[in-house]
Design a protein around this nucleic acid. Structure first.
Length: 447
DNA sequence: TTTTGAGTTGTTCGA
DNA sequence: GTCGAACAACTCAAA
């Protein structure tokens, strides 16, 4: 007899209600992870490598981990039956695929008299629980975040003690997904997540409100990847922020609220992962993706801040948030390419790639998302660069061709009297022209 | 029911 | 260089 703890996006032992539930049911616990081809295939090399490292870390903490590769419906049932378990414990998954998968698994387990027990979720307040007074989900962020904060969340529980882990070896084929040598990925695992969080609280939180927008300063928390894989739970972070209690802590809490808001929107509108949240935007005329999309992907648009961001993505599997907005605006509004192409590229390369946050961030930038503000919010890549990377330090870090360009030309190297430095492309479009073009196209879908 | 006010992340123009 | 207004009138929560 034993219970099964099926880890998915909760690769940690502390603050893990599903694990506590598993231990409470039976102190003999089989730790399981299933590498699901349907999720593994679309994950790019960064998420594969990071997940592999994260699983190795979890296995080390536990002293073993059953890793299976295949359809969860068959794999979870097989493991549960072999362990003679009566319960399989999970944190609830609210994504479109996860919900469907868990229903299938639940049904298959039930045939053998085994229960799938859902406890907790990757969110402080589970999607679907924040409602307005009429019981409907919120459509805009600010009222959601107020209600979300008032909803409250329990104190983070500690890691369970006295677990009798049933420890099989980690299967070896998992190690096949190591990171490409030229990719600089962050350290994976629960300890690394907590270390980074403590480090951020101590050194960067105080200046977070202003410094987070400066890619040259690199003062964001970089917690997204740890949240993505549940190496730390937002509840733990919220408790720490409440203890700090400063305006900066409140600013950071708002960022966590955004993550929960987008998960909530996706929960209520699972189709919005692919389709336009506001259907009328599907009528927008866009260009077929061609050379322009390729130039954007490769970081060869001739706009320094855009190219720096796209190259950071390829070098680190990560991009600074401010720059994500700039490159997204550029793809949709300067190159007139549909947001789904950008979202797909991001999800392929981002180590923190999360369906809800990623795709709703893109919808927001495309104008079809939850932003109620005017559609004519079009980023000027030059202005944005000057404002948020004033000395061009971020640009120089990722675009070596511009390393020796004088400060005053680094955002517009084509204006340099001696011409562009060798190997750096001419701007592929005229921003002013494309801005007018984007406005005209938006105009065309309005009544 | 009606009204009111606010809305993550912007840009440009002209004084 | 800095500042405020205009952009164009939408959506939605809450009073």
């Amino acid at each position: 007899m034993a219970s099964v703890m099926w880890f998915r996006r909760d690769l940690r032992l502390a603050d893990n209600p599903a694990l506590l539930d598993a231990v409470a049911t039976d102190h003999q616990v089989v730790p399981l992870f299933v590498v699901d081809p349907r999720l593994w295939r679309p994950a790019g090399p960064t998420r594969r490598a990071y997940l592999t490292a994260g699983l190795c870390d979890l296995a080390e903490r536990i002293g073993g981990l059953q890793v299976r590769r295949g359809d969860p419906v068959t794999e979870v049932v097989a493991v549960a039956r072999a362990a003679e378990a009566t319960t399989v414990h999970v944190a609830e998954d609210f994504g479109p695929y996860g919900r469907h998968r868990d229903e299938q698994v639940q049904r298959a387990l039930a045939e053998h008299g085994i229960a799938l027990v859902r406890t907790g979720s990757p969110y402080a307040v589970s999607p679907g629980r924040v409602r307005n007074k009429t019981g409907d989900p919120y459509q805009v962020f600010t009222p959601f975040s107020r209600a979300w904060a008032e909803h409250g969340w329990p104190k983070p529980p500690a890691a369970p003690r006295g677990v009798d882990w049933q420890r099989p070896l980690v299967s070896h084929d998992l190690y096949a997904a190591s990171a490409p040598d030229d990719l600089a990925l962050p350290r994976a695992g629960e300890s690394a997540a907590r270390r980074r969080w403590r480090d951020f609280l101590e050194h960067s939180l105080a200046e977070y409100a202003d410094a987070r927008d400066r890619p040259d300063l690199d003062r964001t928390s970089r917690m997204s990847v740890h949240l993505k894989w549940g190496e730390i739970h937002p509840r733990t972070m919220l408790a720490d922020l409440a203890a700090v209690g400063t305006p900066a802590a409140a600013t950071y809490r708002t960022e966590l609220a955004w993550r929960e808001f987008y998960a909530d929107v996706l929960y209520h509108r699972p189709d919005s992962a692919r389709e336009y949240l506001k259907p009328e935007y599907a009528r927008m005329p866009y260009d077929e993706p061609a050379e322009a999309l390729a130039a954007w992907q490769q970081g060869r648009t001739g706009f320094p801040i855009v190219d720096a961001g796209m190259r950071q993505l390829r070098a680190e599997g990560w991009m600074h948030n401010r720059v994500r907005m700039i490159v997204a605006s550029f793809l949709v509004k300067d190159l007139h390419v549909e947001w789904q192409h950008g979202a797909r590229h991001f999800l392929h390369w981002l180590v923190d790639g999360d369906l809800a946050s990623n795709n709703h961030g893109w919808q927001w930038m495309a104008g079809s998302g939850t932003d109620a503000a005017p559609y004519f919010r079009i980023f000027n890549p030059i202005t944005q660069g000057k404002k948020f990377d004033p000395d061009g330090a971020y640009i120089r870090r990722y675009v070596p061709e511009l390393a020796d360009v004088e400060d005053r030309y680094v955002h517009e190297p084509w204006t340099r009297p001696e011409g562009l430095p060798g190997g750096y492309p001419e701007p592929i479009v005229d921003h002013g022209e494309e801005r007018r073009e984007a406005l005209a196209r938006y105009e065309s879908i309005r009544r």
